[in-house]
């Protein structure tokens, strides 16, 4: 019974979002956000808060397709996409992309790891909690750093700043660990 109620709450949440979108009404949008919170509580009652939170956040992403599909529009008959001549790929361009890839996967991994750890070890927590927090924050910090670097028009300046941040974090960790 609680599962059914929680599902209906998720459906009501998505319906609310749909109505707010259809009528461009901000009040309906806030109401739907409120319903999302209520559905989290409903799911938590039904399945415990750990499963409940996952259900409440993930099930709307499937229910939403009822509305998207119903709302779909055709732009007319199929047309072929006009093609232009093949793009040329130079060795220099390929090397530059590979370089960026290595920076994102290796250098930024290290910078984000150091930055995350120095932050977590500043907090008054038990070691196990610091590690757990670090595990959650690491991919987010890494994601933000790589986004910042790749969207920047000043690639080398951004990379230099990030590397300085990484070095400062390493220094901070060395101080925290009593190595300096």
């Amino acid at each position: 019974m609680m599962y059914l109620l929680a599902t209906l709450l998720s459906l009501a949440t998505v319906s609310g979002f749909y109505l707010s979108w259809k009528q461009q009404a901000s009040r309906a949008l806030w109401l739907s956000i409120g319903l999302l919170v209520v559905s989290c509580i409903g799911w938590s009652y039904a399945a415990g808060w750990e499963y409940g939170l996952v259900y409440a956040l993930c099930i709307p992403s499937m229910l939403v397709w009822l509305f998207i599909w119903q709302q779909r529009k055709s732009l007319g008959v199929n047309k072929a996409i006009p093609h232009s001549p093949a793009a040329k790929v130079s060795a220099k361009l390929a090397a530059s992309h590979m370089g960026r890839l290595l920076v994102v996967l290796i250098i930024q991994a290290l910078i984000s790891l150091l930055l995350t750890l120095v932050f977590c070890y500043l907090l008054p927590l038990e070691d196990v909690n610091r590690m757990a927090l670090g595990i959650v924050l690491l991919p987010l910090v890494w994601a933000l750093l790589s986004y910042q670097l790749l969207q920047s028009r000043f690639y080398w300046r951004s990379l230099s700043i990030q590397m300085v941040v990484g070095l400062l974090s390493a220094g901070g960790l060395a101080v925290q660990g009593g190595l300096i």
Partner: peptide, 15 residues
């Protein structure tokens, strides 16, 4: 937000 429920088929298929 504007496109939150849009799904446009047809034409070149790109949309």
């Amino acid at each position: 937000l504007k496109d939150a429920f849009r799904l446009r088929t047809g034409s070149t298929g790109q949309q």
